[in-house]
């Protein structure tokens, strides 16, 4: 029965080995996608290269369908997969701040590690920035604590929130992703013709 770790197939120390191996796969995929390069990531926000959207939504759809089918067959106990609580306001405000940092800095935390390991100076400096930002947050935490813990909605998922079945939400997300892919392909074609800028 999965998830294996929750059914004590192996102990904590071995889970760190698993973490390292899964991390290698994660870093490998990010680099393959071009996410070690800030220009590719930033291009998403100027609509001339939609790689971020394509990779992210394909990954989400793949993992989501996997979770859905594995739990439907009965191989996975989905209730044992950790889903963080929703703190709706801090997460919306935090997301907006993070998005601003994304365009200014050119990376997100995961991609900056790949960028740094591929030798990019801006990636290394970006990581120093994250460390500084986390430090500032930590020092300001006594002031922010109340907001940080506000609007806790618990472990709430889209099916709960929308009052739809799990399968229905999965279907809607797949449909939305396919629509987004079609729009992205079309948009890239139109924009690259207009500006003469290649997709790559």
């Amino acid at each position: 029965m999965m998830p294996y770790f929750k059914f004590d197939y192996f102990g904590f120390d071995f889970s760190l080995v698993v973490a390292f191996i899964i991390g290698i796969g994660f870093g490998f995929a990010l680099e393959r996608g071009g996410f070690g390069n800030a220009r590719i990531l930033a291009a998403q926000f100027y609509f001339y290269n939609m790689r971020v959207l394509k990779v992210m939504f394909t990954a989400i759809v793949t993992a989501m369908l996997g979770l859905f089918y594995f739990s439907w067959i009965g191989w996975l106990d989905l209730s044992l997969v950790y889903i963080g609580d929703t703190y709706i306001l801090p997460q919306i405000i935090g997301g907006l701040i993070l998005g601003i940092g994304f365009v200014i800095g050119g990376y997100c935390p995961g991609t900056s590690f790949v960028s740094a390991s591929a030798g990019r100076t801006d990636g290394i400096i970006f990581i120093l920035g994250i460390i500084f930002g986390v430090f500032v947050f930590g020092e300001m935490f006594p002031l922010l604590e109340e907001f940080y813990n506000s609007t806790n909605m618990g472990r709430v998922t889209l099916p709960d929130f929308l009052g739809l079945s799990h399968g229905m939400v999965v279907f809607l997300v797949v449909a939305m992703a396919l629509g987004a892919f079609a729009a992205a392909e079309w948009g890239e074609k139109v924009l690259s013709k207009k500006s003469g800028r290649g997709v790559e």
Binding site: G99, G101, F102, G105, Y107, S112, F126, V134
Partner: peptide, 9 residues
């Protein structure tokens, strides 16, 4: 950008 992102995250 990294600092802003660290804080937001």
């Amino acid at each position: 950008g990294g600092s802003i992102m660290g804080f937001g995250a």
